[in-house]
Design a protein around this nucleic acid. Structure first.
Length: 429
DNA sequence: TCTGGGGTCCTGTAACCT
DNA sequence: TCTGAGGTTACAGGACCC
C-alpha cells in the first residue's frame, strides 16, 4: 500500500487537503482482480480477461500479465504471444456488476454525490462528509481499507480540488495507492506530465501536438490559446488549454440520463450474405428495443453502423416521425438504411444498431400510425418482456431468429451454443 | 499486431426555415 | 418572386473514454 502527497516534484506525507473535495476511486485491474478473488489459486499469476475468439481483445489483465507488456484493448492473439503462460478467463459481467454494486453502495454511504464513470471507477464529492468522517485524505484511507476488507480487491484513490486532477492523481499512484494533490502543487504536478495525460488527448491528438513540438502539459500551457485552437479546433483547443492550467469547473453529477442505447456485434469471420446481415440487424434491433423498454425510454433516431473487412466504417441514421421502443420498428428502419447502402456482397466484419435522441417514455405518448392496428408489435414486445421476466431472457423472440441451422452469425464474443439456441437478448451480460 | 462493445462529444456539411 | 444571411436541425464521420 502506498500513500503520498505531491509537493515540489516529490511525494511527501501529511498533505494540506482542505480544498480537496473530489476523490477519484479506481479499482486496480478490476475484472482480473474479481476473477482472482473467485479463484484464489490464480493469485500472483498473470491473468488475462477477454474474448477468447479469434477476434477478441483484452478487457483486463493482472499486473503480473502487464509486466509482460499486456494491456487492455490489446488483440488477444498478441497478448497470448507476449504472455504465453497467462491464464485466460472469458469474463463474467454479471459477477463484475455485482461487485461494482457493492462498491458503489459503499460510496453512497459516504456521500450522495457519487458519479460512477464505469463499473470500476467513480468520482465522489466529500465536502459534505468532512464533519462526520474527517478530512478527504482520511476518507480516502477509510474507503481503501473497506474495499479491501469487503471485496478483497485493491483500489487507487486520487484526491484534489478538481475532478480532472483527482483522476490524474489516482492514475499516477496505481496500483494500490493514494495520492493527494494540494492546490498549491497542482501546476507543478500537471506540467511535468506528458500531453497524453490530458483528458481528451488520444493517439491522434498526441500526434498533432507532437507536430507542434508539444510533448508535456507544461508546454501546452505555455502555447498561445489561438495556436492550439487553430491546430485542434476551437473546442478541443480551449479544453486542453484550460486543463493544462488545472482549470476544470465540472462538478459531481450523480445521475445523467442516457443519450443513446445500442448494440453491435463483430462476426467471427467476415460475412457477405445480405440475409445473414438482416438477421443480425433484427437481433440487434430487438436487443436494443428491450433495453430501451427497460430504461423507460423511446428513441427518435435509429442509426446503423457497418464495418468492412478493412476496418473502414460507415454510419447511417434516420429520424422517425414518432419515437419508438418497438423492435420491429427499429429493425424496419435499420434494414432500410442498410439496403440503401447498395452493397454488392461486400465483406462485412461488424454491424451495429443504435437508438439515439432518447426521450422518457412517460413524456412521449406513442402515436399510432394511420392504418396501424391498435394491438401490434408494441403489445407483442411487452408480452415478450413479461415472459422474459418470468421464464428468462429470450423465451419469446422473432421466428426468424430461431434457426438452429444458422451458420455464421455467432459473434466473436459468444462462445456458447449455436445462434438459434442462444437467448436473443443477452443485454444484461 | 490487427484491432470488442458500450458510450459521449465535436466538427463539417447540407438542408431547411425565417 | 428571387436572393442572401443567419439560425437550427439532421446526418456522417471521427476521436476519445472505460
Amino acid at each position: 500500500m502506498v500513500e503520498h502527497q505531491f509537493e515540489f516534484g516529490v511525494f511527501v506525507d501529511n498533505p494540506d487537503d482542505h480544498n480537496c473535495r473530489f476523490l477519484h476511486v479506481d479499482m486496480d485491474a478490476f475484472f482480473a482482480s474479481v476473477e482472482v478473488r473467485r479463484r484464489p489459486e490464480l493469485r500472483g499469476k498473470p491473468v488475462i480477461v477477454g474474448g477468447d475468439g479469434n477476434r477478441g481483445v483484452v478487457t483486463s489483465a493482472t499486473y503480473e500479465a502487464r509486466a509482460c507488456g499486456v494491456h487492455s484493448a490489446m488483440p488477444m492473439g498478441r497478448a497470448r504471444r507476449l504472455c504465453p503462460h497467462a491464464v485466460i478467463v472469458p469474463g463474467d459481467m454479471r459477477l463484475y456488476a455485482e461487485a461494482s454494486a457493492g462498491i458503489m453502495a459503499l460510496f453512497r454511504s459516504i456521500t450522495p454525490l457519487v458519479e460512477p464513470l464505469s463499473l470500476d471507477e467513480a468520482f465522489l464529492d466529500v465536502a459534505g462528509a468532512r464533519r462526520r468522517l474527517g478530512n478527504p485524505r482520511e476518507i480516502a484511507v477509510w474507503i481503501r481499507a473497506r474495499i479491501e476488507d469487503e471485496q478483497g480487491i485493491t483500489c487507487s484513490v486520487g484526491v484534489a480540488s478538481t475532478k480532472f486532477v483527482a483522476k490524474l492523481a489516482s492514475t499516477c499512484c496505481k496500483p494500490d495507492g493514494l495520492l493527494v494533490v494540494p492546490d498549491d502543487t497542482v501546476i507543478r504536478f500537471l506540467h511535468a506530465l506528458p500531453v497524453s495525460a490530458l483528458w481528451g488527448v488520444g493517439a491522434k491528438t498526441e500526434e498533432q501536438l507532437t507536430r507542434l513540438g508539444l510533448r508535456s502539459v507544461g508546454q501546452v500551457a505555455h502555447t498561445p490559446l489561438p495556436t492550439l485552437q487553430r491546430a485542434l479546433g476551437p473546442a478541443l483547443g480551449a479544453h486542453l488549454y484550460a486543463l493544462s492550467w488545472g482549470r476544470d469547473e465540472r462538478v459531481v453529477v450523480p445521475h445523467e440520463p442516457e443519450k443513446s442505447i445500442g448494440s453491435e456485434e463483430t462476426f467471427c469471420s467476415d460475412v457477405d450474405d445480405p440475409a445473414v446481415i438482416h438477421r443480425e440487424l433484427l437481433r440487434l434491433s430487438e436487443r436494443t428495443a428491450g433495453r430501451l423498454r427497460s430504461a423507460g425510454a423511446l428513441s427518435r433516431t435509429v442509426s446503423i453502423k457497418v464495418r468492412f473487412h478493412d476496418f473502414t466504417t460507415l454510419t447511417r441514421s434516420r429520424t422517425l416521425r414518432s419515437p419508438t421502443d418497438v423492435g420491429q420498428e427499429i429493425f424496419e428502419v435499420a434494414g432500410q438504411l442498410y439496403d440503401a447502402l447498395g452493397l454488392d456482397r461486400a465483406r462485412i466484419r461488424l454491424v451495429g444498431v443504435r437508438a439515439e435522441g432518447l426521450v422518457p417514455a412517460a413524456e412521449a405518448p406513442v402515436q399510432l400510425l394511420l392504418g396501424a392496428r391498435d394491438r401490434g408489435w408494441r403489445h407483442a414486445d411487452q408480452a415478450a418482456d413479461r415472459a422474459a421476466r418470468r421464464f428468462g431472457a429470450g423465451t419469446v423472440r422473432p421466428a426468424t431468429l430461431i434457426d438452429p441451422l444458422s451458420p455464421s452469425t455467432r459473434s466473436a464474443r459468444a462462445a456458447g451454443p449455436p445462434e438459434g439456441m442462444r437467448p436473443a437478448d443477452d443485454s444484461q451480460l
